[in-house]
C-alpha cells in the first residue's frame, strides 16, 4: 500500500472518520462490549513483531533497503507475530475486562487515543482497505504512563450503511517492547 489513497468525496471521508472516532471513544470509555459489535465474526486481528535486520548491500540506494515491510514478522511469515487472533480471542479479552479478577487492569488503565491519517486505499465491492495511525496514552494505576504509537491496516466491510472490522493489522512502532502489555485493543 505505497501508492496514493483513493480520491473520496468529503461526505465519504466523514463517514469513515465518524466510524473510527466512535470506535476510539468506545475503547477509551471501556465500552468493549459495544466495540465487539463493530467486529465481523470472521475477523483476523494481527500484530506483526518487528525485527532488526542487517542492511542488504545489494539493495543499497533503493527504497526496499530500509522499508518497514522487511522488518515485520507477520501472519504470512515463518517468524512469530505478537498476536494472531480471531473473534474468539477478542471475545475472551472483552469478557476478561468485565471480571473482577483481571488483575493487571484492576483498577483499569486510563487510555486516550488519537486516530488520524485515515486513508481509503482500495475498494472492492463491499470491502475497503484503509490505513490509519494512532497515538495512545496509557496510564496504569500503580504502574506508570506509557505512549503507544502505531499504524492500523484495516479491511472494513460495508454492512447496511455501517462498517464492520474484518481484518486489522497493527504495526507497532517499537525497538524493544517497553510497555506493560500489547494485549490492548488497538
Amino acid at each position: 500500500m505505497s501508492g496514493q489513497s483513493l480520491k473520496v468525496k468529503p461526505r465519504q471521508q466523514r463517514a469513515l472518520e465518524r466510524f473510527y472516532f466512535h470506535e476510539a471513544r468506545l475503547l477509551d470509555n471501556r465500552q468493549y462490549q459495544q466495540w465487539l459489535e463493530l467486529v465481523d465474526e470472521d475477523i483476523r486481528y494481527i500484530m506483526p513483531s518487528r525485527t532488526n535486520l542487517m542492511v542488504d548491500n545489494r539493495e543499497r540506494g533503493k527504497e526496499q533497503m530500509i522499508s518497514v515491510e522487511r522488518e515485520l514478522e507477520g501472519s504470512e511469515s515463518m517468524g512469530c507475530p505478537l498476536r494472531e487472533e480471531g473473534y474468539v480471542h477478542l471475545m475472551v479479552r472483552v469478557e476478561r475486562a468485565f471480571k473482577i479478577n483481571a488483575w493487571s487492569e484492576n483498577p483499569p488503565a486510563r487510555t486516550r487515543r488519537i486516530v488520524g491519517n485515515i486513508e481509503l486505499m482500495n475498494r472492492d465491492g463491499n470491502q475497503m482497505q484503509l490505513l490509519s495511525n494512532f497515538h495512545l496514552y496509557y496510564a496504569r494505576p500503580g504502574g506508570g504512563n506509557f505512549i503507544y504509537s502505531g499504524q492500523r491496516r484495516d479491511t472494513l466491510l460495508l454492512v447496511a450503511h455501517d462498517f464492520r472490522i474484518r481484518r486489522r493489522e497493527v504495526i507497532m512502532d517499537y525497538a524493544n517492547i517497553d510497555v506493560p502489555t500489547l494485549g490492548l485493543i488497538l
Partner: peptide
C-alpha cells in the same frame, strides 16, 4: 504461545504486572 504468553498474551499480562 502467542495467544496466552509473550507481550500480547492474555495470561502473561497478569504475570508481568
Amino acid at each position: 504461545y502467542s495467544s496466552f504468553f509473550g507481550p500480547g498474551g492474555m495470561l502473561e499480562q497478569e504475570d508481568s504486572e
